[in-house]
Design a protein around this nucleic acid. Sequence first.
DNA 1: TATTAACACGAAACCGTTTTCGTAGTTTTT
DNA 2: AAAAACTACGAAAACGGTTTCGTGTTAATA
Lengths: 341, 341
Amino acid sequence: MRRKITLKDIARELEVSISTVSKALKNSAEIGRDTKEKVQAFAKLYNYKPNNIAVSLKNKHTKNIGVIIPDIVHYFFTTVFRGIEKYANSHGYNVIICVSDESFDKEVINMEMLANGSIDGFIMALSGETQLKNDFSHLREVTDQGIPLVLFDRVTDEIQCDKVILNDTEITHQAITKMIKSGKRRIGLLTTENFFNVSTDREAGYRKALTDNGISVDENLILTLPFNEEIDAIGPFIDNNDIDAIFAVNEIFAIHAMGIAQGKGIKVPEEISFIGFTDGWLSRYASPGLTSIAQHGDQMGEIAAKMLIDRVEEELKSEIEIPFRTEIVKASIVERESTIN
Amino acid sequence: MRRKITLKDIARELEVSISTVSKALKNSAEIGRDTKEKVQAFAKLYNYKPNNIAVSLKNKHTKNIGVIIPDIVHYFFTTVFRGIEKYANSHGYNVIICVSDESFDKEVINMEMLANGSIDGFIMALSGETQLKNDFSHLREVTDQGIPLVLFDRVTDEIQCDKVILNDTEITHQAITKMIKSGKRRIGLLTTENFFNVSTDREAGYRKALTDNGISVDENLILTLPFNEEIDAIGPFIDNNDIDAIFAVNEIFAIHAMGIAQGKGIKVPEEISFIGFTDGWLSRYASPGLTSIAQHGDQMGEIAAKMLIDRVEEELKSEIEIPFRTEIVKASIVERESTIN
DNA sequence: TATTAACACGAAACCGTTTTCGTAGTTTTT
DNA sequence: AAAAACTACGAAAACGGTTTCGTGTTAATA
């Protein structure tokens, strides 16, 4: 079991000083040709790699970024994560990921674990509980310390930082308009408790699309489903409201509702059509295929990672403050067979 | 922008030495009551938290574990990850995750990035390319350095380390036997190139189940689908072979095949039944629901994390070598409507 | 009262780097 | 030939902790 070789080992072996070795390996002009070659050859031979931890301690930055998301077994978040990881890795950064599990406490604990030197900055989407409690002191704690933070998707106006969001309202407006254009009038909305900023935004798009098209909003057509998977309400909801289309704020609700409708023998999309948020595996492989809103998670992740890393590296070299930005990713509608084209 | 406070700051402010502060905060018996209380109060007031990096450098372990998986937008891997993260977090460890994207090179690069002090050990599933090339030198590199490694699911006999695997052969045997018991005789197998150990094992279970039940294996009933999503072959495969059941080594293949069969108007499960590996969202929300093999990813992840952390912490306190173990997780069959009960 | 033990704390080494600064020895300049 | 300027390298501080060991004070023992 070969132990890792250090600068000190090389220095001792080659009878030069540690500083000489360090400089030689960095190709410093201070060091003579022969010494450089000797050191570099030796280092290569013994496969020397600098110890990341020591470098981090010295340089005061770790090349790690912390990601905190509410859930990992979730299509959208995994695609965002993939985008983050891709961008980060190609820029020499590693990603430490923590799952808050929609819990405020876990979110706080995870942030505290990472905020003590482990990472150069955070990328996160707020947990459900955090949005519900409306308590962001842990975020402020972190930004006050000068640790860069990028929020994505589940964001808040309470915190001044970089953000990446989707044009939720707009894309919902488009989707609902599309349904109306295809002749639908009694369009149901399946949504979650509106402490989620995204639910609120999507509902706003829904309402505006209806009124813009001269249809008054029937509150009975808006079904708020609880946090857990309590979805028995969908059946009666469809039956009692003469519904001819359903827009759902997530894939699961949409697929579920479509399954229930099909079970009742209602024809999709002629009698009832469906659109759901998140263009994931379920939408793709449902039968009929589910028309859905592609959130371009990979793109959101890459943008978030770029914003964060740009800020981290800017802060290293200059003292000028970069203003906070909010980038908006444009969603798109992926048409499949659950809607009338 | 308050900077983080250090031991040195506290020492200066309280006019004691750094070592006294350090000991006081650790409640060392060496330090007097009054001094301890003074230091602890001050530390609490200014929210002192030790710098992780400095502690890591000193202690030579980081409380980080590295996870390398081939894909993140993938139900099974995310559940394993969730298990790892849960166990690790509750034991004070953070998880750095890298995605190899089924690429040998990325796997190597990721391992090298992390193997230089960033982590105390690895948990990984081999990339497709690695299994194809059969080149595990990067793993050996790491184990030779004494860095603990746990392989899960996609493993290899070439490397001596802890492993967590599924009883692939056995559960496939059970599933196929179940199909036979329900009257099926022409059972198709949808599989991938057999450089994946899991594909090989599952195929072995398939073959054995048939012969054990007195059915000879018809090689035409085994369809090997390529790495990408080239699945046009499924339609003709069903048509030409008088197939009455299909077992697929993953969820996507199964769902796809079921969709194609339904498109042809073949009745599921009466005329053709389906079982797929991975009990994910697709299986749950397909219509009819897909009978599937639950791999208990959370459990695999927790076991892997426990094996790794146990080994890391054992190595800290004693020099005795723990023998390598292979834990086998028992899959189970989740029955839904795509099979005859 | 002299000796020993217990107590409370500080100095310093150490983890593995990076980086500033000082200085022999050599070369160039005048 | 003396002064100035390079060249090539080493010593040492620093990053922020942990830990060993030494020591001055006080309390207990003989």
